[in-house]
Write a protein that binds this DNA or RNA. Structure first.
Length: 442
RNA sequence: GGGGGAGUGCCCGAGUGGCCAAUGGGAGCGGGCUGUAAACCCGCCGGCUUAGCCUACGUAGGUUCAAAUCCUGCCUCCCCCA
């Protein structure tokens, strides 16, 4: 095998790892070959819809793949779909999604790129960011007619979710047909060699190929990535399923959420989900993933430790190493060896993230929460600290043995405690507060 | 333009006059257990210093001793025909 062939194979192995589909099957190999022969980087497109400001680990999957391309010297082009977002994203369940204002889109796009830069290489040689309103926004109706004439209704109806909805007699907005068209045009505009997307994007990616051909460009290769399961280990990660791990979550929360992901999904090989996270959420190269898999299999690596490392890496990426270290120490202290009861004496030392809650004498006497002698009804205290939404919830927590004040279990919802400052209040396993008493006039 | 259907707690969804703060599932929360905030088991899951009271079933009225349930207007959504 020649040097060239070896390099092609190396890149192909890395880039196709973890991919769900590569269409056409040998397309990626051909693109890499051309890239090497002509000594030019491939243009790799990833489209982003700035409709939702909250990004989660699932969104990071294509970003990781994009990064792999960058690391091999290729050029990532991030398309911010600000134009499509203005129209309002019709795909999926949430039927009434109000069109966003330009300001919102701008803010969302900023949030997105801020997060994306934590994964991507921001070297301008390797990364370009384009807003599709730049070209789509100025299209005349005539241009649109010419564009749409290149697609047929039957062709669009082939699309899985359109067909399903059509058969199920669910509504399909006319403008929804234009989505693939717009996205396809983006590929033409930037002359994409490869476009990445989730499995739900397959159709749109293929539409790009179709349109590029009409514009006499070499059609792009569509590379789809599997959807990452959420913290339930079953359904795809999504905010609407409440199983997501947000990229902006508090470090401790983020760490815990990763730890909480099951080792494997139902009826899947052991540890498959841990490995999937390594591969997709962290973008580990195939040989490293294989090594972890082997160690797990041989019981050289404890699955708990594998997951802990995973959690650390995730937090480190988005929140920094220090935060990751702290989150890990915190997790160990709270959930690992000792039960909380026995460790309580040391809680203050061990628990790294312990929000100090200031109880203001002045404002709370006015609200009749804190009495003049410094005592307070516990359910009220729980609300003041933010540990409970309502005194009713506070009551429940107490009734269910979830509340400790100065290490002592509170069992009666009517209990009042005296606050002098410095007391530790624990609510459940996760919430620990240190109370600070603010004197009057401070 | 015409005909039909629907709006219930964070989400899905039962409930068609009193037994409804409203079945069930999911999410969430507390406890137990544990390598794990997994799995599993038990409990909670509108508010209120809570054996009681208040507010709630799109919205505004009405019928009734009594309404999520019946009637009317309005709003929103969906389907079919054109």
């Amino acid at each position: 095998m020649g040097v060239m062939e070896k390099e092609i194979k190396r890149q192909l192995d890395i880039l196709s790892s973890g991919a769900l589909e590569v269409l056409p099957g040998d397309g990626l190999k051909a693109k890499i070959a051309v890239s090497l022969k002509e000594n030019r980087p491939l243009i790799v497109k990833l489209g982003v819809d700035p409709t939702a400001p909250d990004l989660h680990l699932g969104h990071a999957v294509p970003l990781r793949k994009l990064r792999q391309f960058q690391d091999l010297g290729h050029k990532a082009v991030l398309i911010i779909g600000d134009f499509t977002a203005l129209v309002g994203d019709p795909s999926g369940r949430s039927a009434t999604r109000p069109p966003l204002t330009p300001e919102q889109v701008k803010i969302n796009a900023k949030t997105y790129t801020d997060q994306a830069f934590k994964v991507l290489d921001d070297n301008p040689q390797r990364l370009e960011i384009r807003y599709n309103s730049k070209w789509l926004g100025s299209f005349s109706f005539e241009t649109i007619l010419k564009l749409t004439a290149r697609f047929t209704v039957a062709g669009l109806l082939v699309r899985d979710d359109f067909m399903k909805r059509y058969k199920a007699e669910q509504p399909i907005g006319l403008h929804e047909f234009l989505y693939p068209v717009m996205q396809a045009y983006d590929s033409v505009e930037i002359r994409a060699d490869i476009e990445l997307g989730g499995s739900d994007q397959k159709f749109n990616l293929l539409a790009g190929r179709q349109l590029q051909e009409k514009f006499e460009q070499e059609p792009q290769v569509a590379l789809t990535l599997p959807l990452l399961e959420g913290t339930d280990g079953v359904r795809k990660m999504s905010k609407s399923y409440d199983n997501h791990i947000g990229l902006t979550f508090e470090p401790a929360d983020m760490f815990g959420k990763v730890m909480r992901v099951p080792d494997e999904g139902p009826e899947q090989p052991r540890f498959s989900l841990i490995l999937k996270y390594y591969q997709l959420a962290l973008g580990y190269l195939p040989d490293k993933v294989a090594a972890i898999a082997a160690d797990l299999e041989a019981e050289k690596l404890d699955p708990r430790d594998a997951k802990e490392e995973l959690a650390w890496q995730v937090v480190a990426t988005y929140q920094g190493r220090e935060a990751a270290d702290a989150a890990r120490a915190d997790f160990d202290a709270r959930f690992r060896r000792p039960r909380l009861q026995t460790v309580h004496a040391d809680t203050e030392r061990i628990v790294t993230r312990m929000p100090a809650v200031e109880i203001s004498v002045e404002s709370n006497i006015e609200r009749e929460a804190l009495k003049e002698d410094g005592t307070i009804w516990v359910p009220k205290l729980l609300v003041l600290t933010g540990g409970a939404q309502s005194t009713s919830e506070g009551r429940r927590l107490i009734e269910q043995s979830g509340v400790r004040f100065k290490g002592e279990l509170i069992t009666d919802p009517a209990t009042e405690v005296k606050i002098e400052g410095g007391e530790i209040l624990q609510i459940g396993k996760r919430k620990v507060y240190k109370l600070t008493l603010l004197p009057i006039n401070s």
